[in-house]
Amino acid sequence: MPPLTLRVNGHRRQVEVAPDTPLLWVLRDHLGLTGAKYGCGIAECGACTVHLDGRAELSCMVTASRAAGHEITTIEGLSADLSHPVQQAWIAEDVPECGYCQSGQIMTAAALLARSPSPSEREIDEAMAAVLCRCGTYQRIRRAVHRAAREAGP
């Protein structure tokens, strides 16, 4: 297998994987970035959400070869010190319960706010409906998205 070069969290990383390997498993099992989670493998749960060029993508559905050439950002690269407004809002609202889905939630919310800094309820619904939370933290997620929009605002 020829090595594949990926750009992850601002660094060039070389991996030797089959080109059709989902990005999720490249991140988790080859690059040691376990923030993105496996929940379903069929684009239903959103726990694996990362950014490709700033857009939210399900890393279980993106092959390594397709990800090459794009700027990949995972929860580990969202900020170096939890300073991203979405992470700050998540801390302020103490959103997580078990925590498993939360990197998917945060990456989805961060991509939403990047393209729509003051999202409507409907935009929030549409974006966040992509990520399942079995603990049921949805109500605090909504509050945190509003808080992040407010505090990152102009």
Binding site: R28, T34, G35, K37, Q87, P96, G99, I106
Partner: peptide
């Protein structure tokens, strides 16, 4: 546990 969860650093079984 919130800061570690939010950083993606919490270690789950997987």
């Amino acid at each position: 546990d919130t800061p570690a969860h939010v950083a993606g650093r919490s270690v789950f079984g997987l």
